[in-house]
Amino acid sequence: MKQLIGSLISAALLLILSTNFALAEQTGRIFVSNEKDDTISVIDGDSLKVEKTIEIGERPRGVGISPDGKELYVAVSEENKIRVVDTNTLEILRDFEAGSDPETFAVHPNGNVYVSNEDNAKASVFDPKTGAQIVEISVGLEPEGVAISPDGKRVIVTSESTNMLHVIRVPEHTIENNILVGSRPRAATFTKASNIAYATAEISGEVVKVNMDTAEILKKGSTGDSKSKPKDVLLSLDEKVIYVAGGRANAVKVMDADTLKIIKKIPVGKRVWGLAMTKDGSRLFTTDGVSGTVSVIDTGKNEVIKTIKVGSFPWGVVIND
């Protein structure tokens, strides 16, 4: 009996500790990179108001957060660096060299950062704690989108001018497949099971659904009119629909994840590129580059519930939740 009580108490303590631990980590903030005015807008997750603007460096584009939620990473392309910000204090902590012209990146579950180096046809891997480069991988021209499978075994790098998805195996860092898709592939995302990926092709105005085990294109879907130049793509929590940032169509396209047919168009600001979703799947944030705004979408209704003015040409968005 004593033993049972003892283990119950320790289990309760552990629960409290871990809950506290998790709460202490995540600020709920939304971070937005503003490409043209070299800043990061920090949006409070509850009030949905900009609480701070951080001077970050030249041409900030890709943004990401460390697996423990403590650090924000920002690719400052013109400086060839990734700058690290404390998500809690909002102080700039350090930076590290991230190869030539780092555009966007993704954070691996193991903490490493996979970067596309736009102007030299390379993808590179860094340990953001030390800034050490782990490996450099040759890919096609103008590499842009980087997506990491939830199981951590594959990384997709899209090359915009070579029209390919380069599939890189982790930890080997060898290219497993080069999948030719439509013109100017820009972004990709994986299903939770890691076996399917979706990618957008900007100039051909398409989304492709790819079987990652066979490298086979399962389906192609048009994102609509000629102005619709898709960029970011994300899956809903139940994986029944995908959200596609429609570029100059000034709308987010909600598409059936199976048929790739458009279900709904959600009007947002001008030239929408970046997308981020809360972990609970309830809200979607967009960066509307030309409007200089972030739109907040309620995914239950698929409607914009708020528009937030941020800096000049917002590019990437990430949530610390």
Partner: peptide, 10 residues
């Protein structure tokens, strides 16, 4: 030159 960069993958 760009064609040969792509060509190495194909």
């Amino acid at each position: 030159q760009e064609a040969n960069l792509q060509g190495q993958f194909l």
